[in-house]
């Protein structure tokens, strides 16, 4: 009763929680829609939080991705802070045609992650969206790369509209998560249960049998 999705765990190897953050209007929801349903459409602004699930085969594993799409405006930040908890991957999105959405990454969003992310090993990914508007671009790719280096995150430029690099964006992130043992452990329900089994309630292991 306490593990409602236990039946489903048969259908996938790992469950990962991903989070999308970034300024309002950079295209977080569009990116997610582009990834989960291969479509692009005009969307209403996200209020509070939106949630989508995507099943995917990546790196030879069957994955269930629970993706939380947050609202960008400041007012919603205290509400969204709780969504950082337990996320294995965080995608920071900016709009390559709006400089302030890029500068806010270091001014605001990186700090939010430090503040709220409970997961030390959590994989971060920087995404420059809207590269379809190349003529309006104001943030150069090089700047994105530099930022990513400085903050130790993955980096990709993409377009939710043309779907350029959208799949790759999520795949890269997930592959990196799969490469990280601690995150892998978290993502595996089966493993989790084993961990509990391996740690029996009686704490006295003084009778250490070494067989």
């Amino acid at each position: 009763m306490d593990s409602p999705s236990s039946q489903e765990s048969v259908g996938f190897d790992y469950l990962f929680k991903l989070l999308l953050i970034g300024d309002s209007g950079v295209g977080k929801s569009s990116l997610l829609l582009s990834f989960t349903s291969d479509s692009f459409q005009d969307l209403s602004p996200t209020i509070g939080v939106d949630f989508k699930v995507k099943y995917a085969d990546i790196g030879g594993k069957k994955l269930k991705l629970a993706i939380w799409d947050t609202a960008g405006q400041e007012r919603f930040r205290t509400l969204t802070s709780s969504y950082y908890r337990g996320a294995q991957g965080i995608i920071m999105v900016y709009d390559v045609t709006r400089r302030e959405t890029f500068t806010n990454l270091s001014d605001i969003w990186a700090k939010e992650i430090d503040l709220y992310s409970t997961n030390q090993d959590c994989i971060k990914m920087l995404v420059g969206n809207k590269v379809d508007k190349e003529s309006e671009r104001v943030v150069m790719k090089k700047e994105g790369i530099n930022f990513a280096r400085e903050y130790g995150c993955l980096f990709i430029e993409c377009s939710a509209k043309t779907r350029l690099n959208v799949q790759q964006c999520f795949e890269e992130l997930v592959l990196k998560i799969l490469d990280t043992p601690s995150l892998l452990a978290e993502g595996s329900k089966v493993l989790k249960k084993n961990i509990f089994k391996q740690k029996p309630p009686q704490p006295d292991t003084s009778s250490s049998s070494c067989c």
Binding site: M1, D2, P4, S44, I47, G48, V49, F51, L79
Partner: peptide, 21 residues
């Protein structure tokens, strides 16, 4: 209690926006 679907996840929008979304 069972599913722990915090109303903040869905009703926050319902209420603040008077159901307009």
């Amino acid at each position: 209690l069972t599913n722990k679907v915090n109303p903040q996840f869905y009703a926050f929008r319902w209420i603040t926006l008077l159901l307009t979304q």
